[in-house]
Amino acid sequence: MSLYERLYDEAEQVKVRFVGFVSEHGRYDFGIVYTNMFFGKPLVVCMQTGRSSLLSQDDVENLEYLQKVYNLRSKEEAEELAVFFSNNLPGLTLEAEAEH
Rank of each mutant, 00 (worst) to 15 (best):
N87G: 15
E80Y: 05
K15A: 14
S52G: 07
R73F: 05
D29N: 11
N88I: 02
K41Q: 09
T49G: 10
S86L: 12
V19P: 10
A78M: 11
E64A: 12
V69W: 01
F30L: 11
E77V: 02
K75L: 14
G50I: 01
E61S: 12
V83I: 13
E76H: 06
M47E: 12
F18Q: 13
R17K: 12
F84L: 05
G20P: 06
V45S: 01
A78D: 07
L55M: 14
V83A: 15
Y70V: 03
C46P: 02
M47I: 06
F18I: 15
Y34G: 04
N36F: 00
R27Q: 13
L72S: 03
G26T: 03
F21W: 08
Y34Q: 11
K75D: 10
R73N: 08
F18H: 15
S52A: 10
Y70K: 11
G50H: 08
R17S: 13
F30T: 01
V14K: 10
F21R: 09
F21V: 12
A82R: 03
E24D: 11
S56E: 13
V16S: 13
E24I: 10
E79R: 15
K68E: 14
F85G: 06
C46Y: 05
V33A: 11
S56N: 11
D58Q: 13
G31Y: 00
N71H: 03
V19Q: 09
I32T: 03
G40V: 08
V60M: 05
N88L: 08
V44Q: 05
C46R: 09
R73D: 14
L54F: 14
G50L: 02
I32C: 07
M47L: 12
N87Q: 15
L72H: 06
Y34L: 04
F38R: 09
Y28T: 07
N71A: 09
V69D: 02
E77R: 09
E80T: 09
S23Y: 03
F30N: 01
E79H: 09
D58Y: 10
F30S: 02
T35P: 01
D59F: 05
L66D: 02
S56W: 09
C46F: 03
V16F: 04
V44K: 00
S52F: 05
S53I: 03
F38T: 12
L66W: 06
K15C: 14
P42V: 01
H25Y: 12
V16N: 06
N71V: 06
N36T: 00
G31D: 03
L81W: 01
Q57F: 00
N36D: 01
L55F: 11
L63D: 02
R73L: 06
S53R: 06
S23W: 00
V22E: 14
E24K: 08
K75S: 14
V45D: 02
